[in-house]
Design a protein around this nucleic acid. Structure first.
Lengths: 348, 348
DNA sequence: TTGTACGCGTTATCAT
DNA sequence: ATGATAACGCGTACAA
């Protein structure tokens, strides 16, 4: 099989020349557009395969403005939450021929900005984003607006930016999720409940905290400032505070987590303090990975429908890409409480 | 601040016209190339910012053949292994201004082929791949070769394709990893050892199996066909076989896992059979996620340097992209045995 | 230092 | 049904 050494890539014009027809006909034939006889089309397609023709997306998108690519902005790649989001996203993107660029911004505003600019330059057709807000309330809202003005639809998932309502979004009903958790604990007889806020400022965490406060007030449950553990930058590091709390006599009977890494911290801290679960302290986890089931004891947890979030968000996005003009939809999904064995039933 | 309604995107020519200079000068000014006076350059850059100029990568790459993008082929997105690979990859890509497209082929040959073609069309500058081989020995070797001929460098990570040596690669020294595990178990007094092969045919798994057989023979350790558990399609599903093995009186004293999902299956099966670890059976895990540490007991495991694999692979790739012409390097990394509490010390 | 002219590979428009 | 031509936005060799 002879083949040009390390030659120039074969283009539509090469095919055209070889067949003594015009490039436009080749283009039509390959694109499956009308206006080419069936036989000619066949010949073209055969030759294309034979000559290893590979279409050039850059040239194509210069003309059509389509790249069949979207951007996926992830707030912290270390959180396995996003693995499931990616699965959900991928499952609808692949069949439609879309690719995605992963942008892990690591809770860093500048990185988010850099990536947004890259995505614009790259010509992605849409962006799925879990946007960042710092403790001091800073965010890239204006940049997101610029992206939208630039003609690139954006869908927020998992998180929102406060005061920016003109985007589609898919998030968990965070308040209710935690409130339901508190109700559950109360039903199990718990009246002293603490909570671990993975990181102040984050949309999800603040929402969950709101739910906690509301429920606690409603049920007139005791809680104390020392029982509200706040994570700090970097995430995953409220370990020491937890140990201190767990060593104290004044600890609550149950503690609620607000995301998966935080659940891990809680378990680790309990372990290192020699506390048994649920005998010495009850734990209500957040997020549900397989490991929760494997633990001893298995962890009772608040499960969010993660793949669903990804799937719905990307479906919304593709709708916009296809020209959907409705006003923005704000979707809130319900969490589910998975009962296992990390919460003790207290006698009243 | 007046701004054109929903106007055409601003291009280099727009900037040029506004400043009464030529597009080429604008191009040079923006690209930081010599041949423009400092003041003019400033003026251009200011105007660019003011007018929200966004460079068009498609047009640029049509000229330069550079997209600042690579493809990352992942064999199964459900395996958290790849989260760490992505972290490693990202950590060296981001500072260099490269983006990456994630392609999860889900152990499916056709999907791998589809993605490879997309990546070629898309004009990625390089591809990082964990290539697939089926039980029957099929693989996309020829397609990978075509990609290479097409001028796109490929680096294999985690897995290789048998008989295809003309690519750079970064993999674990799988044989030694498992062999060392066997030695370790033997030192702890174990003489009846089983192994769980996550899925036959996969490069990594077969290599690990080789290491097992060699070590077992060398040490003259007893093993039986029933103690070699084989996963089947779909992955993660040798659960029933494990339960059968664990319920039998004839079970080994220790069992070795060959990847993370398999470790989970083992633990789950042991649990459902009421076996205590390590009293009733010792478990040597493979891969190390945080959860291993949180388990009761914490899992002794073979840890591969996952982020390193990603980091080295992408570094190799960027080298090729930069024109490195050396002959392919095959890098093998060593695993590390993390001793925790899931392996019992047997009296001799 | 700056401008002119062309081409990258493709598609869309208009003509035949 | 097919062909000719222009245009997408940018970089670059060459000219000035």
């Amino acid at each position: 099989m002879r083949r040009f050494a390390m030659s120039r890539k074969v283009t539509i014009s090469d095919l055209a020349r070889k067949l003594n027809i015009s490039p436009s006909t080749v283009s039509r034939a390959l694109a499956g557009k009308p206006g080419v006889s069936a036989e000619l089309r066949q010949k073209v397609q055969n030759l294309a395969k034979e000559m290893d023709y590979v279409p050039n997306v850059a040239a194509k998108s210069l003309k059509t403005k389509k790249t069949k690519t979207i951007g996926l902005i992830i707030s912290d790649i270390r959180n396995p939450f996003f693995l499931d989001v990616m699965r959900g996203v991928e499952s609808v993107l692949f069949p439609r021929g879309y690719k995605f660029i992963v942008c892990s911004v690591n809770e860093n505003l500048e990185r988010e900005a850099v990536y947004l600019n890259w995505l614009m330059e790259h010509g992605v057709e849409g962006i799925l984003a879990s946007p960042l807000t710092t403790v001091s309330g800073k965010h890239n809202g204006n940049l997101y607006r610029k992206v939208a003005r630039f003609g690139i639809p954006v869908v927020f998932y998992d998180r929102l930016i406060n005061g920016i309502g003109d985007f589609d979004s898919v998030v968990l009903d965070n308040e209710t999720a935690i409130a339901d958790g508190v109700f559950y604990l109360r039903r199990k007889g718990h009246k002293k409940i603490g909570i671990c806020l993975a990181r102040r400022g984050l949309y999800t965490i603040e929402e969950r905290y709101k739910g906690f406060k509301k429920a606690v007030e409603l049920l007139q449950i005791e809680t104390r400032p020392e029982w509200i553990i706040e994570g700090k930058h970097p995430m995953y590091s409220s370990f020491e505070k937890l140990k201190k709390l767990f060593s104290s006599e004044e600890r609550p009977t149950a503690i609620i987590s607000t995301n998966h890494p935080m659940t891990r911290s809680i378990l680790r801290a309990a372990k290192s303090c020699g506390l048994r679960i649920p005998e010495d302290i009850s734990v209500l986890g957040f997020d549900d990975l397989i490991e929760n089931e494997l633990m001893s004891p298995p962890i009772t947890t608040i499960r969010q429908p993660v793949m669903e979030i990804g799937r719905i968000a990307v479906t919304l996005l593709l709708g916009r890409i296809d020209g959907e003009k409705e006003s923005p939809s704000s979707i809130k999904l319900k969490a589910e409480l998975i009962e296992r064995e990390s919460v003790k039933t207290l006698v009243e």
